[in-house]
Lab assay of single mutants.
Amino acid sequence: MLEGKVKWFNSEKGFGFIEVEGQDDVFVHFSAIQGEGFKTLEEGQAVSAEIVEGNRGPQAANVTKEA
């Protein structure tokens, strides 16, 4: 698991990027966000996630919002 913060997230398109210190930004799709209801993230929000290899490079999986 790694910790980072949301760089930006487009709720209409359902994707965005997470900033991780010392690494390239990581793509995040709404389907990777854990929880019930409408899955979205806010800019600057702290999150933790796993990194997996997607079709277009590294992407976030099992994204959870930090308190």
Score class of each variant (00 low, 15 high):
T64M: 13
T40D: 05
R56Q: 09
A49Y: 15
R56K: 11
Q34P: 06
A60Q: 02
E36S: 12
E50I: 15
L41W: 03
Q59S: 07
I18Y: 02
E3D: 10
Q59N: 05
S31K: 05
K13D: 03
K65M: 11
K13Q: 08
Q45D: 12
F15V: 06
T64K: 15
I51S: 03
A60F: 02
I33Y: 01
V47Q: 00
D25M: 07
E12P: 04
A67I: 13
Q45F: 06
G37H: 05
I51G: 02
N10M: 03
E21L: 12
T64P: 02
A61P: 02
I33T: 04
G44D: 04
F30I: 09
V6F: 00
E50W: 10
N55P: 15
L2C: 10
K7V: 05
F38P: 08
G57K: 05
N10E: 04
G16A: 03
Q59M: 11
G22Q: 05
F17K: 04
K5W: 10
G16V: 04
K7T: 03
H29G: 03
K13M: 09
E19R: 11
V20P: 00
V63R: 01
L2I: 15
K7Y: 02
G37S: 06
Q45S: 08
K13N: 06
A32C: 10
K65G: 08
F30A: 09
G44F: 05
T64D: 06
P58H: 08
K65E: 05
Q45E: 12
F30N: 07
G4Q: 01
A32K: 06
G54T: 14
A60G: 05
F30V: 09
V63W: 00
M1S: 11
L2M: 11
E21N: 10
E50L: 13
Q59G: 04
E19G: 08
G44C: 09
A46V: 14
G37M: 05
S31Y: 05
A60H: 02
G44T: 04
S48I: 13
V20E: 01
E43T: 15
P58R: 15
K7Q: 03
G16E: 01
A32P: 06
F30E: 07
A49D: 02
A49K: 02
A61R: 12
E19Y: 11
V6K: 01
G14W: 03
F27E: 06
E66D: 12
S11Y: 11
V26M: 06
V47H: 03
Q45I: 08
F17G: 01
E12S: 13
T40L: 06
G57E: 01
V6W: 00
D24C: 14
A67L: 12
V20L: 10
S48Q: 12
E12A: 14
V52F: 10
A46W: 15
V47A: 03
T40Q: 06
A67T: 13
G14R: 00
E36L: 10
L41Y: 01
G37V: 03
V20Q: 03
G14C: 05
D25F: 07
P58N: 07
M1C: 13
V20A: 06
G4S: 01
E53Y: 14
A49L: 15
D24F: 11
V52R: 10
V26F: 05
G35N: 07
F17W: 09
F17R: 02
K5H: 11
F27V: 00
A67P: 13
G14E: 01
Q59K: 09
G14Q: 01
F27G: 00
V28H: 04
F27N: 05
F27C: 08
Q23L: 13
F30Y: 12
E21I: 11
A67Q: 13
E19C: 14
E66T: 15
A61N: 09
I18N: 01
W8P: 00
V28G: 04
G22K: 03
A49R: 02
E12Q: 13
A61V: 13
V28D: 07
E50A: 11
A46C: 15
K39Q: 09
F9C: 07
M1K: 15
V52T: 09
G44R: 04
G14F: 03
Q45A: 09
Q34V: 14
Q23S: 11
G14K: 00
W8Q: 01
E21H: 11
T64H: 13
F15G: 01
F15R: 00
A46E: 09
G14I: 02
I51P: 03
K13I: 08
K39L: 11
K65S: 09
N10S: 11
W8E: 01
G4E: 00
Q59W: 10
Q34I: 15
A46I: 14
T40F: 12
F38S: 06
V6S: 01
F9M: 02
V63Q: 01
F17D: 00
N55Q: 13
F15M: 06
V28C: 07
V6R: 00
E53H: 14
G57V: 04
A67F: 12
M1E: 07
E19V: 10
L2G: 03
Q23K: 12
Q45L: 07
V26E: 00
D24G: 14
R56H: 10
T40R: 06
H29T: 00
I33S: 03
F9V: 04
E43L: 13
E3M: 14
K5Q: 07
I51E: 02
I18G: 00
F17M: 08
F38K: 05
G54F: 06
A46P: 11
M1L: 13
V52D: 03
E53A: 13
A32V: 09
G35R: 00
N62C: 13
T40E: 07
V52G: 06
G54D: 04
E66G: 15
Q23V: 09
G35P: 01
G16Y: 03
K65T: 11
F27Q: 00
S48G: 07
V63L: 08
L41H: 01
A61Q: 10
V26L: 14
D25G: 04
W8M: 00
E3K: 15
V20K: 04
E42K: 14
K65Y: 10
E43P: 15
P58W: 11
D24L: 12
K39C: 09
E42P: 03
I18Q: 00
F38A: 07
E66P: 11
I33H: 02
A67D: 12
E43Q: 15
A67C: 12
E42Q: 12
S11A: 13
E36A: 11
N55I: 14
A46F: 14
Q23N: 09
R56E: 05
S11C: 14
V26K: 02
F17A: 02
E42D: 09
E12F: 11
E66R: 15
Q45H: 08
E21G: 08
I33M: 04
E21D: 12
Q59R: 10
A49P: 02
Q23R: 14
I51K: 07
A32Q: 10
V63F: 00
G16P: 00
E3R: 15
G57F: 05
K13P: 01
F15S: 03
A61C: 11
T40M: 08
N10K: 05
D25T: 06
T64L: 13
I18C: 04
E21P: 13
T64N: 11
I33C: 08
R56D: 06
V6E: 03
Q59V: 11
T40S: 10
S31H: 08
T40K: 07
H29S: 02
I51C: 08
K7S: 03
F9H: 02
V28K: 00
